[in-house]
Simulated assay, not measured.
Amino acid sequence: MSIVGPKETAVRVAWRDDAPDWVLALAREVDAGQKQASLAKRLGYCPAVISGVLKNDYRGNLAQVEARVRAALMSERVTCPALGEITGQECLEQQRKPLAPDSGWAVKLWQACQACPRNLQNKEGGA
């Protein structure tokens, strides 16, 4: 049996023992010594978002937060239409890249990324 840290315990209480696996992964990162501000930066959010998710009172787009947590903390692998199988973190990094018109391949990659349903930039609220 694994030891449950204080943040994970607080999350289980806030979520009434119904916390999704990705929220627990976020709590475990905090329990392992990761500062919420550092996690927020890594995920592309402000610390208030991380705090709200952990407390189960975030009213924003949880699906987007989940996608970022799975990509950055849970080693999710995805199929990119241009690159094939990549990590979720690589996918997020590609999404954030601006168009680089100096390379034909970079343009094709950017276009594929823009059309991809995984691209959080294309969804309400942005990435």
Rank of each mutant, 00 (worst) to 15 (best):
G84E: 06
C80V: 03
V49H: 02
S51V: 12
R68N: 09
A67M: 08
A63T: 08
S51G: 09
A67N: 01
V53G: 09
L92P: 12
E93K: 15
C46I: 13
A63G: 05
R42C: 05
R59F: 02
R70Y: 01
L62W: 04
A72D: 02
S75A: 14
T87M: 10
E66H: 05
R42Y: 00
Q64E: 10
N61E: 04
L92I: 14
P81V: 09
I50G: 08
P81C: 11
T79L: 11
G60Y: 04
S75H: 14
C80H: 14
N56C: 13
L73D: 09
A67E: 11
S75L: 10
A71T: 01
A71P: 02
N61S: 03
V65G: 00
Q89E: 15
A82N: 13
A63V: 01
R70P: 08
L83H: 15
E90Q: 15
I86S: 11
R42W: 05
G84M: 00
T79Y: 00
N61F: 02
C80Q: 04
L43A: 06
L43S: 03
I86H: 06
R77E: 13
A82P: 07
M74V: 09
L92T: 10
P47Y: 03
E76K: 10
N61M: 07
L83E: 15
A63R: 10
V78E: 01
A48G: 13
E76D: 12
K55F: 01
G84Q: 08
G52E: 13
G44V: 08
Q89L: 15
L73C: 08
V49R: 02
V53M: 03
A71K: 01
G84K: 03
R77W: 04
G84A: 08
V53S: 05
Q89M: 14
T87N: 13
L83G: 08
R68T: 02
R59C: 10
A71V: 04
R77F: 10
V69F: 01
E76P: 06
T87F: 11
G60H: 01
A72Q: 04
A72I: 10
R77M: 14
Q64V: 05
E76L: 12
